[in-house]
Amino acid sequence: MRVSTIGLVHNAGDLQRGSSLEQIDRARLAAHFADRGEHDLATAPRGRVVEVHGEVREMRLVPGATPHVDAIVCDGTGEVVARFGGRARPDGLRPGSHVLLLGEIHDVDGAATMVEPVVEESPASLEAP
């Protein structure tokens, strides 16, 4: 009987990649978003318009003098902050949703950031992960 048949691991690759939830999740996203769009988040170039895909890992509602909403999008290879000014939450952005972002990536406070990118539902989200 293979170990996977009793639900311990899916395959030997799982063991090689590690077994923490974070590692498993990264592997899940990397497998899911592989070959989607022009670039993955780890290699997406800075300073020119790119199309990237990923899953919204976190939403941040930041109040204060310059309120904004950040969506942290991750594709298993890296992550990008999609930043939107004001208090309004862009449609389609919620934790767990799969999105396509179109815009320029710049480094802001050490984090890859897209300011006001175009957001679409990722075609990848139509397929089962």
């Binding site: 999740d25 899940r28 899953e55 919204v56 890992r57 976190e58 939403m59 941040r60 509602l61 930041v62 109040p63 204060g64 208090r87 939450r89 919620r94 934790p95 767990g96």
Partner: peptide, 23 residues
């Protein structure tokens, strides 16, 4: 997610809220 964010906004809580996805 919808419940926490709408409650947060309705009560005008002036603190940064981070909602984390847990797959």
């Amino acid at each position: 997610y919808d419940r926490i964010v709408s409650d947060w906004e309705r009560n005008e809580i002036d603190v940064e809220l981070r909602v984390v996805h847990s797959p």
